[in-house]
């Protein structure tokens, strides 16, 4: 296990070093994410100016959801997008062979090979928003701790879905569009799931589990989360992760029997 951590550290430090060759990207991305964030906050601020709460969510509570969304978006930009869109490239350029011949888990290798700093501002802003909203809501350390489990489950779920989509590039060499659709669907996570019509709520819970990613952690912090939902989030994450591993092995079997 130690070797995996050490290798990951090297992966990430070398990625950062490579990225430093193009430093201005970092600055630009921290400004654009700040701009995006300001826009979204302005939007919910506008909504809540007229009504104190919608479907049981106040402005501050909605801010929590927004904070988690921003954080997850940051994580997606830092490790998920950059690595999982690479699978395509490895297949097309044949460098997948090098990865398969390394004595280290290939799913691990593909998933954490790169690390890009552009998402770090988003992670930081997300944390700041959660802290700010938490302060206004008078939440204590216990409440913050309550969000950790569903947040971790949300991350694992997000990763697993993304990885499976990326892995389909073994068959369909161009899957950029698919991950693009996923990112856009996930954008629904910036508002509490209760704000959506019932049909969409079902879709975003069971089909694309956006609800588990941002709303459930916020509910956990507010002490409103059903035990059932928390367990659901954990089970969903575990199943998704296992599915991603099984799917990867299935995809590899295909790759290794079809490629020349």
């Amino acid at each position: 296990m130690n070797r995996y951590f050490k290798t990951m550290r090297l992966f990430w430090t070398t990625s950062l070093a490579a990225e430093m060759e193009y430093r201005t990207n970092f600055l630009i991305s921290s400004f654009t994410s700040l701009g995006n964030l300001a826009g979204s906050i302005f939007l919910i601020h506008l909504i809540f100016q007229r009504v104190p709460e919608i479907e049981g969510w106040s402005f501050d509570q909605s801010l929590l959801v927004m904070g988690f969304f921003t954080m997850l978006g940051g994580v997606a930009n830092t490790v998920l997008r950059v690595n999982l869109s690479r699978i395509v490239q490895h297949v097309r350029e044949g460098t997948m062979d090098f990865i398969l011949l390394k004595p280290i888990d290939s799913q691990f290798h593909l998933s954490v090979r790169r690390f890009i700093s552009w998402g770090i501002p988003d992670i930081a802003y997300g944390i700041l928003i959660v802290l700010y909203a938490g302060m206004r809501l008078g939440l204590g350390p216990l409440e913050y701790a309550a969000a950790l489990l569903p947040l971790a489950a949300g991350l694992v779920t997000l990763y697993s879905l993304w990885f499976m989509l990326g892995a389909t590039s073994i068959w369909f060499v161009k899957v950029h569009n698919v991950t693009y659709v996923l990112s856009n669907l996930l954008a629904a996570g910036r508002f509490p799931i209760a704000l959506y019509p019932v049909a969409m709520r079902l879709f975003f819970t069971f089909i694309v589990p956006v609800a588990f990613l941002t709303t459930v952690p916020a509910q956990a912090m507010l002490g409103r989360a059903d035990w059932l939902w928390l367990i659901g989030a954990a089970v969903f994450a575990a199943v998704a992760f296992l599915a991603s591993r099984m799917f990867w092995h299935f995809a590899l079997r295909h790759y290794t029997s079809a490629s020349s």
């Binding site: 290798t7 090297l10 070398t14 070093a17 490579a18 390394k102 004595p103 280290i104």
Partner: peptide, 14 residues
Amino acid sequence: DLPAMDSLKINASI
């Protein structure tokens, strides 16, 4: 984009 030495260190760890 990096010196070969960095890739070598990664391989050493793997």
